[in-house]
């Protein structure tokens, strides 16, 4: 028998159970793939047009995306100013791509990220250099999703390291406070934490002080993410042999020197996969701000489908949004696998 024949026999029809599985899988594919291709490609309606043209075509309504993608991507941001969030996102993606090359891991990269945050906020807010000011209440779509995800991760990460160190601390009070915070937050659903942030923050603050809805949601997301990240970091701290601490002590290093120079570089390297996993979760969880009334990518997609004429084509709309989320999450998980191999090079 030739090689493909042998491969097919071994991998698809090796045993009776195997054959049954193959037949089942083929039946499933036969039932789903041709109708899907017909719906998504052959009977679909492409290009601009009205909902009516979609109904006549009978297949997928990609017209929806052609007509309403601006609303889905940018939410309530003023229509003629869409180039600003677009430019900010392009800069963000470019810097993200640059950061994934080892050649670029130089001090200037940190400066570039700082500069990006400043430039992107100026672009989004406006009010300088002749840009029309845009309030955060009008921010929406993918830029808002990215802003919340990135800021929540950037703020939560150092906080989580402190929490993890606190949990491993020998000082009973610091340990108790850290354990209490981590376990309390991890026992709660994010939805109720976000509700708490949106309902109770106004009560917590002195009279007359208000904070914006987006900021409240951001604080909720940050507090939540920090607790989970802290547990991931703790896993790394626990894996460091005691001899490392003792050696650092013997060298006369202080607690913070020990942590910064000896323990954390090793511990964080060990827990890259769970940490990036938590970043991915955080990115997906930003969609929950929809529930407290912010116009992130998901809510903006929902808003684009609010028009009764377009509502029947909700699958197309959500599919497009899902693809955007998928691309970011998939990139992060692949990047974590690459990063894990990359930082392990030195130890081999």
């Amino acid at each position: 028998m030739n090689r493909p024949g042998r491969w097919i026999k071994a991998n698809l029809f090796g045993s009776p159970v195997n054959t049954v599985l193959t037949v089942l899988a083929l039946a499933l594919l036969w039932q789903t793939v041709p109708p899907f291709l017909d719906w998504a490609l052959f009977s679909a309606s492409w290009g601009g047009g009205s909902p009516e043209s979609c109904r006549q075509a009978g297949g997928a309504c990609w017209t929806l995306l052609a007509e309403r993608h601006r609303l889905m991507l940018f939410g309530l941001y003023p229509y003629d100013q869409h180039w600003r969030p677009l430019l900010a996102m392009a800069l963000f993606v470019a810097l993200l791509a640059a950061s994934s090359h080892r050649r670029c891991w130089r001090p200037w990269l940190a400066l570039a990220w700082g500069a990006l945050i400043v430039v992107a906020s100026l672009l989004m807010w406006g009010g300088v250099a002749g840009l029309v000011p845009v309030e955060t209440a009008q921010w929406g779509g993918l830029p808002l999703t990215l802003v919340i995800a990135v800021l929540a991760i950037v703020v939560a990460f150092p906080f989580s390291i402190l929490l993890a160190l606190g949990r491993r601390s020998e000082l009973p009070v610091i340990k108790a406070v850290s354990v209490g915070y981590i376990e309390l937050v991890r026992g709660l659903p994010l939805v109720s934490l976000l509700f708490m942030a949106s309902v109770m923050f106004p009560l917590f603050l002195p009279e007359g002080v208000t904070i914006e809805k987006a900021l409240r949601a951001l604080v909720g997301m940050t507090l939540f993410t920090a607790a989970y990240l802290a547990e991931a970091v703790r896993g790394g701290l626990q894996a460091i042999p005691k001899g490392q601490f003792e050696a650092a002590d013997a060298l006369g290093l202080s607690y913070w020197q020990t942590m910064r120079l000896i323990i954390l570089p090793q511990a964080l390297r060990l827990v890259i996969p769970p940490i990036v996993g938590q970043f991915i979760t955080c990115f997906k969880d930003t969609s929950l701000v929809t529930i407290v009334g912010l116009y992130d990518l998901l809510a903006a997609t929902k808003a684009a489908l609010n028009d009764p004429a377009w509502r029947p084509f909700f699958v197309e709309g959500y599919l497009a949004a899902a693809l955007v989320y998928f691309c970011f999450c998939f990139f992060m998980s692949r990047y974590s696998q690459w990063l894990e191999r990359e930082v392990a090079k030195g130890t081999r």
Binding site: A10, G14, N18, L28, S287, Y318, C329, F330
Partner: peptide
Amino acid sequence: LSGNWLMARLCGVYVEAVRNVPLLLQLFV
């Protein structure tokens, strides 16, 4: 993990597609 290549691939596609999309979006669908 089964020896069946086709089934293993199908399950892999399912896992990757579902895990990388927010639950709330899936609920709306």
